[in-house]
Design a protein around this nucleic acid. Structure first.
Length: 447
DNA sequence: TAGCTCGTTGGACAA
DNA sequence: TTTGTCCAACGAGCT
């Protein structure tokens, strides 16, 4: 009997268009589909409450598809290396395959696993369209500015995806003959770990969860119908103008290449490449997930004000668009992109609170919480990131609301008390803006 | 090598 | 009401 191959699922919770799965099928070996729950290996960025809830549903969905194929998902909890070694012993597996992860902690962990495992391993790229290692500027250095990066990629992308991806797309999927998974013992029950948040919160979130690759493909299909209007509508939180694909992409419920192929509208494709750029920056500058990309911001006089941070988190700042966004986040596990920038700008520039506090809150409450995107986004807002010198770019929450929610539809949806006993502004925006500008000016004077 | 241009998403103010 | 200019100045990336 042929020795089996382990497919180690991570943030690639799909069977279609999954290079690791495709590779395993092509070996003709019996397949052991495995997921390991080992959050401490990602600390301090282990999945937050919202992430865990979605993950639970996504794992269930993946298992269902596997069951339809006469298999099932093996779920284990604990130290990844120990679990792999144990399963290899029990199953006689002589090969393992997975899709690469780029988070600094996980990259290091996977490297040590590669060094410790005695069986063959294959590592695929299922999370990104691009091969990050191959992209350098003319000086042979990694890009630090998006536009040159994007233009550089456009130069080869069409040809590259045509060469690289036909072999990765797989609509019809047939798993190989099965290995007797019962030999591997029963699954660990990780439900309690994944559902540690309060019951009422979980219940409230349920309507907003549509996990799994079937749901992801449906979202893509829906978006493809209005993608042509993306550029005009994506800034409007009162309209469904965005793709709503971020969580599916984060958990790998859909292949980014599948999205690229289906959606041809340039403005959206540019966003997809932004996602790649965030991973590229994290890959080349791993410190930037937790530290200012620009070192001079290490001296920025952030304010520690827990009371104000709480008001922001709870959507009680007295600025309608900020509060609407924060409440949308709390109620649904998602926030419209433009509103993310506005609430971020408010925390960092009006309250002068460290971007990392905002990043932590988003990390815990967003279904799509993604280390590369979250850190880059917050650093962009703070002005400490890869984007050059936008410190005077301070969003005005009032004029932004007039521009992008002209009928107050979005604001009214989340702030029913708007016309009755709504909170007064916690700070004066004009004064706060001037203070922020002064703080940054001081920073460059010191440098 | 030196010089040039540009930088995802803006705002205030003046005309 | 709309449009143009400035906000400060740096460093990435190109020519």
């Amino acid at each position: 009997m042929t020795n089996p191959i382990i497919v180690w699922f991570k943030n690639d919770l799909r069977l279609q268009d999954n290079p690791a799965v495709n590779y395993a099928i092509q070996t003709k070996k019996p397949i052991i589909p495995l997921f390991i729950w080992s959050p401490e290996e990602e600390a301090p960025w282990q999945p937050g409450a919202a992430s865990k809830l979605w993950l639970k549903h996504s794992l269930t969905a993946l298992n269902q598809v596997l069951v339809e194929q006469g298999s099932r998902l093996i779920i284990k909890q604990g130290n990844s290396l120990e679990i792999l070694q144990e399963l290899i012993k029990l199953s006689g597996a002589d090969e393992i395959v997975w899709n690469r992860r780029y988070e600094p902690k996980l990259k290091a962990r996977d490297e040590s696993i590669v060094n410790a495992l005695v069986i063959a391993h294959k590592i695929c790229n299922g999370a990104l369209i691009l091969n990050l290692e191959q992209i350098k500027n003319k000086q042979g250095q990694p890009f630090k500015v998006f536009t040159p990066f994007y233009n550089h990629c456009l130069g080869f992308l069409e040809e590259y995806v045509q060469q690289e991806y036909p072999k990765q797309l797989s609509n019809e999927l047939k798993l190989n003959d099965q290995f007797d998974l019962n030999k591997l013992g029963s699954n660990d029950d990780i439900t309690e770990d994944l559902l540690e948040a309060p019951d009422h919160w979980q219940k409230k979130m349920l309507p907003y969860i549509s996990a799994g690759e079937q749901a992801a493909l449906r979202s893509l299909k829906t978006f493809s119908k209005y993608a042509a209007d993306y550029n005009e509508q994506r800034d409007r939180p009162d309209i469904t103008g965005t793709s709503k694909l971020s969580t599916h992409l984060h958990f790998g419920e859909i292949s980014p290449y599948r999205v690229w192929k289906e959606i041809k509208a340039e403005p959206y494709r540019r966003q997809l490449i932004w996602r790649e750029f965030a991973y590229y920056i994290m890959h080349h500058y791993p410190y930037s997930t937790d530290n200012n990309f620009k070192a001079e911001f290490d001296k920025f006089p952030w304010r520690k004000n827990i009371a104000q941070l709480k008001l922001w988190q709870q959507g009680q700042t007295g600025y309608p668009l900020v509060d609407a966004g924060m409440r949308e986040l709390w109620e649904t596990g998602w926030m419209h992109n433009r509103v993310r920038m506005i609430v971020g700008s408010f925390l960092v520039k009006d309250l002068l609170i460290d971007w990392r506090e905002g990043a932590k809150w988003f990390w815990d409450t967003l279904f799509d919480a993604d280390l590369a995107n979250n850190s880059m986004g917050w650093q962009w807002v703070a002005g400490s990131g890869v984007d050059a010198s936008p410190f005077f770019r301070i969003f005005n929450p009032i004029t932004q609301a007039e521009k992008f929610d002209p009928h107050k539809k979005y604001i009214r949806k989340w702030i029913p008390e708007l016309e009755t006993n709504y909170a007064r502004p916690m700070v004066n925006h004009d004064a706060a803006r001037k203070e922020a500008l002064a703080a940054v000016k001081q920073l460059s004077a010191k440098a």
